[in-house]
């Protein structure tokens, strides 16, 4: 256990060093990169991916995956519009119901995975199509617009000088870090991913753990959906398309093993910041969009390879 802990720390140390190098390099490339306004703005842009990445860390630590998060985000966004605009519910109620709908989407994932023993990759691949199809079917390709001013505070406003949604992300980062790192539930999560059979025989409620985690993943995707609608002031059925890939990249870059049993929230946050800094900093230095994707791919490989070389166990 201590050996695993050490290798975890190693990956995060490498990542932190890499992040500092990248930030320094990008700051020399463009004098507009390392400014408070830009950094806060980047925080705003990465919140949706960040929120979902927190839950995804839990999912991947159990050895699972959730490909449906982008579709849940899209479905939540559409439902928010439908509840408020078509059914005439008050907007706060619509927001709560939409987030709950996201949670139900996650709960269904959890049920399919635990009750019917469908591998998470297949189950969430199916619900990725299912939820996106529902979003498109419900919306009939029409968008809902004209939200009241106060709603935009969530996605476009500021509280004490910091983008509103960054506060939400901050609070959830702390909660996620505490739950995964310090609670029995967190240990059950690691045990499930490290050795599921062993965990079952040790009396850990593996299925209950998984159900809770997939439901939380759906809930958080729902929250991200509401924030996204507020940020762009409209709902569309194609919202969040491809989000799952950005999220999984950030989590894996953060050192969470895709085979389960390893990973930390700190690592995910570092991975997230590194990715966003690269996207933004490279664009400011005049690199075009296609070049940026190439660099992010290279950094991902580099970080994983470096962590494997330095980790003596070599078990990653």
């Amino acid at each position: 256990m201590t050996a695993t802990l050490r290798s975890l720390l190693r990956h995060e140390t490498i990542l932190a060093i890499l992040l500092v190098i990248v930030l320094a390099a990008l700051a020399t490339q463009s004098d507009r990169f390392f400014t408070t306004a830009n950094l806060l703005n980047q925080g705003r842009l990465m919140t949706e991916v960040g929120l979902v990445a927190l839950a995804m860390t839990f999912v991947i630590v159990t050895g699972g995956i959730d490909l449906s998060v982008g579709s849940i985000l899209g479905l939540t966004a559409i439902l928010l519009g439908v509840f408020w605009h078509n059914l005439g519910l008050p907007l706060p109620a619509a927001m709560v119901l939409a987030v709950l709908a996201g949670g139900i989407g996650g709960l269904i994932n959890g049920l399919i995975i635990t009750r019917f023993k469908v591998p998470p990759l297949i189950a969430t691949l199916a619900t990725l199509a299912l939820y996106r199809g529902l979003a498109e079917g419900i919306s009939q390709a029409r968008s809902v617009r004209g939200y009241p001013e106060w709603f935009f505070v969530l996605g476009q406003g500021e509280v004490w000088g910091v983008p509103t949604q960054l506060w939400i992300l901050g609070v959830l980062v702390v909660i996620a870090a505490v739950v995964l790192g310090l609670t029995t539930f967190g240990r059950a999560t690691y045990a499930t991913g490290a050795n599921e059979t062993g965990a079952r025989f040790s009396g850990i409620g593996v299925d209950r753990t998984k159900m809770l985690i997939y439901t939380a993943s759906g809930l958080v995707a729902g929250v991200a959906g509401v924030i996204f609608v507020s940020r762009v002031s409209t709902t569309r059925s194609d919202m969040g398309t491809g989000l799952e890939l950005d999220v999984i990249t950030a989590v894996v870059l953060g050192g969470t093993s895709i085979f389960g049993g390893r990973g930390t929230i700190i690592g995910t946050v570092l991975g997230l910041i590194l990715m966003q800094a690269l996207k933004n900093g490279l664009a400011l230095s005049g690199v075009k969009g296609d070049g940026t994707i190439v660099v992010i791919g290279l950094v991902l490989i580099l970080a994983i390879v470096a962590s494997n070389i330095f980790s003596r166990e070599g078990d990653g």
Partner: peptide, 25 residues
């Protein structure tokens, strides 16, 4: 002038591109 944009018709990515170019001045 240069042309730069997302490789998919995606609202979020397009917004990020424009946002970055505003910052770059």
């Amino acid at each position: 002038v240069k042309t730069d944009g997302p490789t998919q018709a995606n609202i979020d990515q397009q917004i990020s591109f424009i946002d970055n170019y505003i910052t770059s001045g």
